[in-house]
Amino acid sequence: MEKFIRLDALVAPLDRANVDTDAIIPKQFLKSIHRSGFGPYLFDEWRYLDHGEPGMDCSKRPKNPDFVLNQPRYEGAQILLVRENFGCGSSREHAPWALLDYGFRALIGPSFADIFYNNCFKNGLLPIVLPTEEVDRLFRECEAMPGYRLVIDLPSQTITTPEGRVISFEIDPFRKECLLNGWDDIALTLRHADEIRRFEEAYRARHPYYFVEESAA
């Protein structure tokens, strides 16, 4: 996983609540057996005027001029401002993969759906939760000022606006460590392999009915 320490980047505002993972990456693209290549299909049904299918050359497709990410001023944005309950619905990790592949490294919103939020951290995409009023203000500032950038500093847990306002955010300490170091969860957990094995033995003795087939085999 790529480390996340500091990000100084252009911001794009996606002003809708309850953006679901079907909207982030529609189902026809879930047929891929790979982790990469989803970026061109991010928000496919909103971003293009035609119907997208896997393998299409997206550079030739008609773009929806009304969709925010198609506006030239947001080209190259790496921070996405979002509204409440972003990432609701399906557990598809293809959603954070698509956001990352497009170029986003951080999301800022008032709330995220649980599974999506969790999936972001597994991929080095930082979802930041701020109070609704603060998010409203960022939306207003971003829309009013072309070239609006934010500086996200993970070690100090702060966001700095162009005018120098500093906003603090909360993050789970374990997830912060993993992002700062780019740690692989599995390697971390396997450091406790002996403890897991001991637990498993005791658990199996207590609940043998969950291991029926194995004892029979």
């Binding site: 557990s91 598809r92 990790e93 954070p96 599974i115 999936n119 597994k122 599995i186």
Partner: peptide
């Protein structure tokens, strides 16, 4: 769960 968690 997500796919990273499936692997985990």
């Amino acid at each position: 769960i997500g796919t990273s968690e499936v692997e985990h």
